[in-house]
Each structure stands twice: as C-alpha cells, then as structure tokens.
C-alpha cells in the first residue's frame, strides 16, 4: 500500500489537473457559481431550524440551534457529497479508464478533494456564524485538524470501495443516495446525541460518523474535550475501512477497463 501511495505522489500533477477540472466543471454555466456550495447546507439549516427549533423544540443546551445544526450539516455535506459523487467517479470517466493507464484511485480522491473545497467555503460561512453567536475560542480547537483527518480518511476509504464496486454492479449508484439519506438521520447531524434514549446510545455511537460530528461540535461549539472513546473508535474504523478498501481497489482496478 505504501508503494501505491508513493506512486500517487508521482501523479500529483494529474491529481491536481483532475481536481481543478472537477471544481471548474461543477459550477460551469451556473449563475452564482461556487456560491452553491454555501446554499446546500445553508438551506437545510434553515429548514431544520424551522422544523426542529420552532416546531419540535429540540434542546441544544447553550448553543443556538442554527449554529448547532449548521456545524453538523457542513460536516455531513462533505461526507455525503463526496460519497455520492465519488461512487460515480470511475464510471463517469469511461473515456480515460478504457484508453489510458494511471492509478485509478486518482478519480475518487480527486472527487473528495474537490468536495473539500466546497467544505472549506461552507466552513467560512460557519466561521461567520460562530463569530455572530460569539462562540469562545478554546485550546480544544487544536483537535479539529485531527478530527478532520479522521473524517477525510473515512470518506476516501468508502469512496474507493464504492467507486470500484459500482463499476461491476451499477446498483451501487442507486443504492448510495438512499443509504446516505437514512444514514444522515441515524447520525447526530440536526439533533443532539442526548435525544437518543440512553439504552440505545452505545449502539448509536457505533456509527463512525457520530463520533466525528460529535467531535467537531464538542471542540468548536462547546469548547470541551472531544469525546475520546467514540472518536477513537471512529478513527479505528476509518483506518480499517481505508486499508481494506484500498487493497480491494488495487486488486480489481485492472478489471475496470474490461467490464466498464
């Protein structure tokens, strides 16, 4: 795997080219361009604020609900957009896959990076929101990059697996959006973990996304230690998924051109 990773470095120029192209291509011929990256989590935040904060009256302790949900939604959008686009990243590049060889993992990885750019942009709005709500700065913010790395490794791992499997069985392309929709409501994106009954809490936290989102929220919004056990578990799962997916990906990669 290390050899594969160092090969990726050799192809960094290609990775850069494909990523740049994907970012450019995504908002081509749209009127507001990359601002769309802001609208998706923002519009969801508004909807959930109305539903959960005014109708359902969910308690989010000291944190205003818009800030609370936007934090989760930004992190979730990065995860879900990367996966849904990543799943199609190889079959969407038939032209290149059947004609030229280079490490195929470049496709899902460049999709993830281009979604990272969207993530950055929506994070900027989050920053403004945090300033607006006077969120204090605490030393725990240093944990955020670590959480982000776990988050990204998990995304790339899953993307590698799904994009490869989708080449052989196109059903995956239909299945992923449905699973993602269900997954979102099984994760503490728009509601706090405390809403989950105590006896199911352990089961609930087996979802690696739960640990990651809780991690972001606890450190940034509440200024507390990240929940170490769930986060550690997420990190373990993320690495496991990444290693297994990557070796699976490399194993089947040369068959892509035969079946695509």
């Amino acid at each position: 795997m290390l050899k594969d990773l160092s090969k990726l470095f050799y192809y960094r120029e290609l990775l850069y080219n494909l990523t740049l192209r994907e970012i450019k291509g995504r908002y081509k011929q749209t009127a507001i361009g990359i601002a769309w990256a802001l609208f998706q989590p923002l519009s969801m935040m508004i909807v959930f604020t109305i539903v959960f904060s005014y109708f359902a009256k969910i308690q989010t302790e000291s944190i205003p609900y818009p800030l609370f949900s936007y934090c989760g939604l930004v992190a979730w959008s990065f995860f879900s957009n990367s996966l849904s686009k990543g799943t199609n990243s190889i079959i969407g590049n038939i032209n290149l896959v059947t004609k030229i060889y280079f490490p195929r993992e470049i496709f899902p990885i460049s999709t993830t990076i281009s979604n990272f750019i969207d993530f950055l942009i929506s994070s900027l709005l989050f920053l403004l929101l945090a300033i607006f709500y006077k969120t204090p700065i605490t030393p725990y913010l240093f944990a955020v990059p670590v959480i982000f790395i776990i988050h990204t490794i998990f995304i790339i791992g899953l993307s590698l697996f799904l994009s490869a499997l989708n080449v052989f069985k196109r059903d995956i392309g239909y299945l992923v959006p449905i699973v993602l929709q269900i997954w979102m409501f099984l994760s503490p994106v728009v509601y706090p973990v405390t809403l989950v009954p105590e006896k199911y809490r352990l089961l609930y936290m087996l979802n690696p996304v739960a640990g990651i989102i809780e991690g972001y929220r606890k450190t940034i919004l509440y200024g507390k230690m990240p929940p170490l056990v769930p986060l550690g578990f997420s990190a373990f799962i993320a690495l496991l998924v990444f290693a297994a997916s990557y070796s699976y990906f490399k194993k089947v990669e040369k068959k892509f051109a035969d079946v695509i």
Binding site: L14, N17, N95
Partner: peptide
Amino acid sequence: HPEFTGRENIYLNGAI
C-alpha cells in the same frame, strides 16, 4: 477527457 479543452487535455496527458 471530453469536457476538457485541447489545452487541458495536453496537460492531462502530460501529467499522466
């Protein structure tokens, strides 16, 4: 890459 311009494809192929 069909969506790329000729110029971009030159860089893409070079990068490959």
